[in-house]
Simulated assay, not measured.
Amino acid sequence: MRFLHTSDWHLGRQLHGLSLHDAHQAFVDHLVDVARSERVDAVLIAGDLYDRAVPPPDAVGLWDQAQTRLVVEAGTSVVVIAGNHDSPARLGVGSRLLERAGVHVRVGTAAVGTPVLLEDDETRVACYPVPFLEPASAVTDWAVEERSHAAALRVAMGKVRSDLAVRPGYRSVVMAHAFVSGGQQCDTERDISVGGVQHVPGAVFEGVDYVALGHLHGRQRLAEGLRYSGSPLAFSFSEAAHIKSSYLVDLDGGGLCGVEEVPAPVPRRMARLTGTVEELLNSPIYGAYEQCWVEATLTDRVRPVSPYERLKRRFPHLLKLVVPSVAVEVGSRTLAELDRLAPVEVALDFVTEVRGRSADGDEVALLHRAFDELRRAEVTR
């Protein structure tokens, strides 16, 4: 039996103000093609389907399209769990009706331990969706004494094992949205710590054939049957080196028999460049990055004039500019001294402070004209 493990779509997310809707659409097209061509029995989406609790309409429309196409065009089942970004109440709307169509959406604690049962001529699999578990909810619903993700997941896995024990001959898959110890973070995952406790030991999942994890955005293997698929798109420049993909997971009567990486489409390469403005503008070594999404970190000793506008001419997809603070000796003034200065002198001091050099003649003249205009405006009010 074959599964396609993916997670952390974050539909509705932007990249430094840039809409990722078209990139998400390309991923959905790719996922449907893979599910159809590889004869996938079920697509597993391990949480954070949406980027926020109240997703924008185009994100909701894309999910509606994706689930419909996976069932109708690819002929596969779909199993989805809520992540920490998702609203259980909203994601779970219509779930009982969707279940009849082969789309299994699990949110909250109520259905934990109740599997989605899948089988073909040779293999029977019990898939246990375990959505993101708020420790506070686990304390209330299950009387968990320790308020932590690990405690909540231990109870959840106890329910899984109890159900699996009465299903002889079934192989097992667990879906979970959590931070498992040993996983590597980047800077785009929302903190899920509770009182400083967010890590879950991998041993919590022992005895299961495959665990499809979500939450961390980098693809990673913690054990042969314990993996993060990672997000299908890069959501910050901290993910520039990630290889985005999904996992094709095969199980037979003996258990896990194969895991294959399926690369996701790359909407545009990402590049992190460092140098002075002149180096970035003129050096041929940066020519290969002109069509990338670019984060540029400047190393100029003096803050350059209009660096963003200038760099944008060479790198039209520049999304982030890091301009270092410039430490300069401009002298310190007391409030009394500042009070005695003319407003234009205060402005000129400010220019020197933030840029690392004094204003040139044209800039001094421009500031004088500006303050003259302000004074005239005050007089005519």
Rank of each mutant, 00 (worst) to 15 (best):
K159D: 03
T109P: 01
G361M: 09
H215Q: 07
H104Y: 15
G254Q: 09
A42R: 00
V107S: 08
E146Q: 14
G182T: 07
D187Y: 05
L319F: 08
C292P: 07
R219K: 13
G75H: 11
V32I: 11
A359L: 07
T274A: 12
E38R: 11
A336W: 08
D191R: 10
Q184T: 09
Q65S: 13
R313S: 11
L62D: 02
A377Q: 11
E278F: 13
G169P: 00
T297F: 01
G225K: 06
M157C: 05
A365E: 10
A203E: 13
D141Q: 13
R310T: 15
A89E: 09
A359M: 05
Q65G: 07
L318A: 07
R333P: 03
Q25C: 13
S358I: 11
G17K: 08
N84P: 02
R171P: 03
R96E: 15
L62T: 01
G158T: 09
A377G: 07
F179S: 07
G12K: 01
E145P: 03
I45W: 06
G287W: 09
A42C: 12
T76S: 15
R376H: 10
L335G: 15
A110V: 11
V105Y: 03
A178F: 03
R52S: 14
D187H: 02
E363I: 03
R221W: 14
A82M: 05
K312S: 09
